[in-house]
Design a protein around this nucleic acid. Structure first.
Lengths: 188, 188
DNA sequence: GTCTATAAAGAGATAGAC
DNA sequence: GTCTATCTCTTTATAGAC
C-alpha cells in the first residue's frame, strides 16, 4: 500500500468526516491535519465534495470485496451467513462506511453511491436466500425483511463501537451471529 | 396541543435537521419554510444551537415517556419486552430521534443529552433484565450486550423506513419482536 | 506540488424601527 | 413579534508565483 499525498488526503478527510460530519469539517481543518496550506488540497481534488465521493466509493468497494471473499470461502449456506456477519462487522467498523454522510452528495453522484449500496444489500439478500433455500433459515419472513433486520443489527454499531472497549469487533460479530440466528428467548 | 410560533419553529427545524442535517440546515431555510424573516427566529431562540438542544430534549423525553407508559401497562416480563419494542419503534420513527446530530451540540449540553440517552438505555436494560430473571430470556449473554443488539436492531430503521412503504411501523415492530426473540434459524 | 494572497459567497447573529 | 438593513466571521474556491 503506497501512501501518496492524495491517499493521505483521503484518509485524513475520511477520519475528520467521520468524527465531525462532512459539513462541519472544513477544508482548513483537513489541510491543518495534513500539514499543508488549504489551497494545496485543490491540486488533488477540485471540490470538497470530491473527497466524500471518493471515500464513499472506495469504502463501499472495500466492504463489498471483503464480504464477497469471506462468503465465497465457504460452502455451507448457514456458514456463509456467519462469514457475512463476521466480515461485514470487521469491514464497517474499520473502513468506516460513510453512509450516514451520503445526503451531502449532490444529484448524480448520490444516486451512484446509493446504487452501489443497493447492490451490496442485494448480495446480503442472496446469502440469506441461499440459507433459506437450504432449509437452514426460516422462510416465513420474506428475505427482504430478514436482510433489513440483519443490516440493522450490524450497522448501528458504528455509533457506539469503540476499538478499545471491552468487546472486540470479532467478539461483537459472534454475539450478532448468536442473536441473529438463535434469538434471545430462552427455549422451553 | 397548541401550536405557538415557537412550537412551529421547533417542528420545522426538526424536520429540516432530520432531512439535511443540523450543520447543513441554514437559519435562512428554516425562516423560509416558516414564512418569516430569519431575524425573527432570534426572538424565539438566541442561537441556532438552542433549536437542536430543545429538539433533542423533547424528543428523548417523548420516547422515554411513551416507552415507560407502554411497558408499565403489562406485567408479564416477556410482554414487557414486546411492548418496549412496539413503543420504541413507533416513537423513534415518528418523533425522529435527533441522536445522529448529537455531536453538533457543544460541551455541557451534549453531555446532558448523552446522559438522558444513557438513562433511557438503562430503562431498556432493566426491561430485558426482568425477562432474564423471569427465565424468559437467555442469560448466557450479558444484559448489556442483549440491549445493544436490540437497540441496534431497532434504531437503524430511521435510515430507511418510509411511512408510505410496504411495511407499516406497526408491522415492522412485529417483525423485530419475532426476529429478536426467536432468531432466524430454522428450528430442527 | 506547494505556497501566499485574495476573491466571492454564505453563514450566524445583531440593531433598531414598527 | 416581526420587519429591514447590516455586521462580522467563516466558508469554499481561485490566481498566480515559486
Amino acid at each position: 500500500v503506497k501512501t501518496t499525498t492524495s491517499q493521505r488526503l483521503l484518509d485524513t478527510a475520511a477520519k475528520l468526516f467521520w468524527k465531525n460530519g462532512y459539513t462541519s469539517t472544513t477544508t482548513r481543518e483537513i489541510a491543518a491535519v495534513l500539514g499543508v496550506q488549504k489551497a494545496s488540497l485543490y491540486h488533488h481534488v477540485s471540490r470538497k465534495e470530491d473527497l466524500l465521493y471518493e471515500i464513499c466509493l472506495t469504502s463501499l468497494a472495500n466492504i463489498r470485496a471483503a464480504v464477497t471473499a469471506a462468503v465465497d470461502s465457504v460452502e455451507d449456506p448457514l456458514d456463509r451467513v456467519r462469514c457475512l456477519i463476521r466480515s461485514h462487522v470487521a469491514a464497517t467498523l474499520i473502513d468506516q462506511d460513510m453512509l450516514t454522510e451520503l445526503r451531502a452528495l449532490s444529484g448524480q453522484r448520490r444516486d451512484e453511491i446509493v446504487a452501489l449500496r443497493d447492490a451490496y444489500e442485494e448480495l446480503v439478500r442472496s446469502v440469506i436466500a441461499g440459507a433459506q433455500q437450504a432449509g437452514d433459515v426460516r422462510d416465513d419472513i420474506p428475505v427482504k425483511q430478514l436482510s433489513l433486520c440483519l443490516l440493522n443489527l450490524l450497522n448501528w454499531s458504528i455509533f457506539w463501537f469503540q476499538p478499545d472497549g471491552d468487546l472486540s469487533s470479532d467478539q461483537l460479530a459472534e454475539v450478532f451471529i448468536d442473536v441473529f440466528l438463535s434469538g434471545v428467548a430462552r427455549k422451553p
